[in-house]
Simulated scan of single mutants.
Amino acid sequence: MKNFIIFGASKGLGEAFVKGLPEQGDHVWIVSRSRPDSLNLNNGVHKHWIEVDLSSSEASKQIANTLNGITLDVLIYNVGIWESRGFTDDYNFEEDAPEEIANIVHVNVTSAITCIQKLLPNLKQSANGKIILIGSTAGLDNSNYTQISFAASKFALRGICNSLREHVKQDGIGVTCINPGEIATQIPYEEGVDKVLAAHGGTQIPLQDIVSLVKCVINLSKASCVKEIHMPTMLDTNA
């Protein structure tokens, strides 16, 4: 039996993790602002919702108080907000508001640090703890992203992984950063890979592929250390 905590799990990739990773009898704590539909699934997995806004400075304390010493085996920080017009044709970095920039950095970077910090005691109780941070190809060298705050936050996530890995190495906790390209989050997990391939070919990654990758990492023994995985789409010309 494993205990999971998944951040950003009310929809998209986070919801796919909730549906695809825990097995019957496992417990999963779902961190999100809005109530996740996955709570309604009757699949033998014990699901617990932590309603919290990660932009709040009190979020990490609230989450830690909810767990209250419960052992965690897997922590997945799957959070990544971006500029409100960041992926529109007329996006212009020079028009980004300072408040929006600060919020992107806080939610994507500061919250990741503080939440993991508060939950390390829970992870240290596990016999084979794993921390997985979901980055982006936007955080890799020579990407063509012009969304500066988003890209900077994903670069920072890689730095968090590198230093955190050294900090918890003595505790046998694995820390992995996964940097995917564009994901087909608009096609629900349960609708399968074939639908994504038919609609997008090699231009978007099926949710199932990332779930399978994470499942592999969390099932490795504590003797293995998977540092970082880059996962662009097959037809990504910038990969």
Rank of each mutant, 00 (worst) to 15 (best):
S149N: 15
K215G: 12
L164V: 03
Y145T: 15
T146D: 15
L164Y: 08
A199T: 04
F155Q: 11
D194W: 01
I148Y: 12
Q170T: 15
C216A: 10
V211M: 02
G172H: 04
A198C: 07
P180Y: 02
V196G: 10
R165N: 11
S163T: 14
G181H: 04
E191H: 14
S153I: 11
E166C: 13
E191L: 11
T185Y: 02
D194P: 04
Q208S: 13
C177K: 00
I205V: 04
I205R: 00
Q147D: 15
C161Q: 14
V211T: 07
A184I: 05
L207W: 05
H167S: 15
I173Q: 09
A199D: 02
I160F: 07
N179P: 09
I178W: 10
S149T: 14
G202I: 00
C161G: 07
H200A: 08
L157T: 02
Q208K: 10
Q186C: 12
L207Y: 13
I178A: 03
I148G: 02
P188I: 03
S163N: 12
D171N: 10
I183L: 07
S149Q: 14
S163M: 15
T203P: 03
G174V: 02
S212T: 01
N179E: 15
A184R: 00
L197D: 08
V217G: 11
L157R: 06
I160P: 04
A199Y: 03
A156N: 06
F155E: 00
G202P: 10
S149F: 06
P180S: 13
N162H: 12
K154I: 12
I178G: 10
T185F: 09
Q204L: 14
R158Q: 14
P180A: 04
K195G: 05
T185C: 11
I178C: 03
N162Q: 09
L207E: 02
T146C: 09
C161R: 05
I183N: 02
G201L: 02
Q204G: 00
I173W: 10
L213W: 00
I187Y: 11
K215P: 00
F155C: 13
K169S: 06
Q147R: 07
G192I: 05
L213N: 03
V168Q: 07
L197Y: 13
Q186V: 08
G159C: 13
G201I: 01
R158D: 12
V193K: 10
S212F: 04
E191F: 09
Q147H: 10
R165W: 09
Y189L: 03
C177W: 01
T146F: 09
K195Y: 10
K195R: 12
P188L: 08
A199C: 04
V193Q: 13
I178V: 08
I183S: 00
K154W: 09
V196D: 10
K215T: 05
I183E: 00
I178D: 06
T146V: 15
Q204F: 10
I187N: 08
R158W: 08
V214Y: 00
H200I: 01
A198F: 04
V217D: 08
S153Y: 06
Y145D: 12
R165K: 11
A152P: 06
G192R: 08
A156F: 00
Q204S: 14
A184S: 06
L164T: 03
D194R: 09
H200K: 06
A151H: 12
L164R: 12
L207S: 06
K154F: 13
I187A: 08
E182D: 13
I160N: 07
V196T: 09
L213E: 03
I160M: 04
